[in-house]
Nucleic acid binder design. Sequence first.
DNA 1: TGTGAAAAGTTAAGAGA
DNA 2: TCTCTTAACTTTTCACA
Lengths: 148, 148
Amino acid sequence: METLDRQIVALLTEDGRMSFADLGRRVGLSTSAVHQRVKRLEERGLITGYRAEVDYAAVGLPLTALISVVPFDPAAEDDIPQRLAHIPQIVSCWSVAGDENYVLLVRVPTPQDLEALIAEIREAGSCSTNTTVVLSTPWEGRTASVPG
Amino acid sequence: METLDRQIVALLTEDGRMSFADLGRRVGLSTSAVHQRVKRLEERGLITGYRAEVDYAAVGLPLTALISVVPFDPAAEDDIPQRLAHIPQIVSCWSVAGDENYVLLVRVPTPQDLEALIAEIREAGSCSTNTTVVLSTPWEGRTASVPG
DNA sequence: TGTGAAAAGTTAAGAGA
DNA sequence: TCTCTTAACTTTTCACA
């Protein structure tokens, strides 16, 4: 990946609504040249979308938790992600190496909602769970960059 | 939070570059009315920013891991987040209830980079670590919505 | 891949209900 | 808090280097 594209990606991960004119100024290209590059990055799938970032507490979802998941029957076919995909409170689902099969990141309004969600996950996923409540979030979703 | 604002937030978390004209059409308001509402949501801090989403593998960061962290000295003042904040590979840092104090989400190019990063975290944070490698990501950063 | 220019579309700010 | 208006800006496309 080229330096110029890396710069463009870095700028857009920090401000996803930056105009092509500003982007161009920052990387030293004309508006239409950055425009073409951004379109190419989107087409090639390096940029997969744009999202507004939200204050989850302000929006009614103050409780975050990490839930690790182990299937009841280790011999059964593992289609847990498909069986959990319809649950909107599950924000992220990672398949992991280690004692657990999956780690889920969930967001809910209240402890009661968390309790109900855990029951729902156990039932829908035929799995046991181990829940770790997030107390505070020093930071989240920071822009990662390639070292070197 | 009002239904209209909730709709606007939901639409912008799915497409952070949607134009105010389109947003207005989707929620049944004039362009300038949605515009005013979005600006107010930004001012009140409900919308905290906009980011491009990136295919991390394509961008040179194919390895994701979750690292849980326990300080060497449980009696010492806990300023681990400040001591780790300068490490750009740490994308998220959650303070958690349970056996560990923090869980970190990290992204690196190679297993060698992960090894070096773990050593750096142990040293900078004066902590022991327990690393869980992410094998695949069925989904991540999905839009959470308030139930009901 | 890049540039610059022009048409089409969008944002922002103000006046009025 | 909404709509309408208008000026300023941005995006998109195109011909050409």
